[in-house]
Design a protein around this nucleic acid. Sequence first.
DNA 1: AGAACTGTACTATGCTTATAATACAGTTAG
DNA 2: CTAACTGTATTATAAGCATAGTACAGTTCT
Lengths: 127, 127
Amino acid sequence: MVSFESFVQTDGAPIYLQIIRHIKQGIAAGTVSDGEEMPSRRVLSALLGVNPNTVQKAYRLLEEEGLITSHSGAKSYLSLTEEKVAAVRTELMEGVVRTLVGAVKGMGVSREEALSLLEKLWDEEVR
Amino acid sequence: MVSFESFVQTDGAPIYLQIIRHIKQGIAAGTVSDGEEMPSRRVLSALLGVNPNTVQKAYRLLEEEGLITSHSGAKSYLSLTEEKVAAVRTELMEGVVRTLVGAVKGMGVSREEALSLLEKLWDEEVR
DNA sequence: AGAACTGTACTATGCTTATAATACAGTTAG
DNA sequence: CTAACTGTATTATAAGCATAGTACAGTTCT
């Protein structure tokens, strides 16, 4: 069963996008695998404290991307291949790089400053 | 005059927050300084192709933060001190690094991998 | 003084996000 | 079989974001 234990909703992004990203991160990390069972819409909405429609929106988009399969009445499962996993990993990595590079280009940040701050915040930012 | 030449609106964030971040990045980078003149609401909205009300919202929040001063009828100016600049710099850096750390942790990247990834991306993309 | 700018305020409309409350049909476990 | 789950769909409400248009008073410059 795909876990949402480490899910944190501190982001400014829409909830349904955070849910999608969380699942994609699990895919990229290899902590979830093909054929694994997804939490039902109702169960996950209760777990996260959000509306079932919000979870449904995330699941619908994930199905449109071909990452999960859903059939009316039955449970939903992850549908992964090596190609899909690689694509997800690339997508997430590119997002990280774009964010980082865009930010440091905007402000004058030294390489050492970035590295030391990364070390400092690494242990504070878990959950 | 504060420049918006390098402003790009590719972010998923609200426009008024992107405007605020752009100005804060200029402050952190030292490319803008205390007393410098801000573009008028109407001029900047035309330049960015957004609504004047959107720029006004960004400017109002910046004034509430004490980073600019506005008086009815007159132009707006940056109001900076060393303390404010340092605070802006810290705020931006923490946001960036928290995003980076959160992302790579979700993807199952270790602390050492994250540090080496940052070093690698830095050398490839910034230099 | 007058024209052209400035900040500021207000109303109205539309879209996206998120919630709430249902409803119905298919699947599955006891 | 039946009850409890599942996915899916619908309608309604509310907030935030962005737009459009208008208005008014203060300032700046010639």
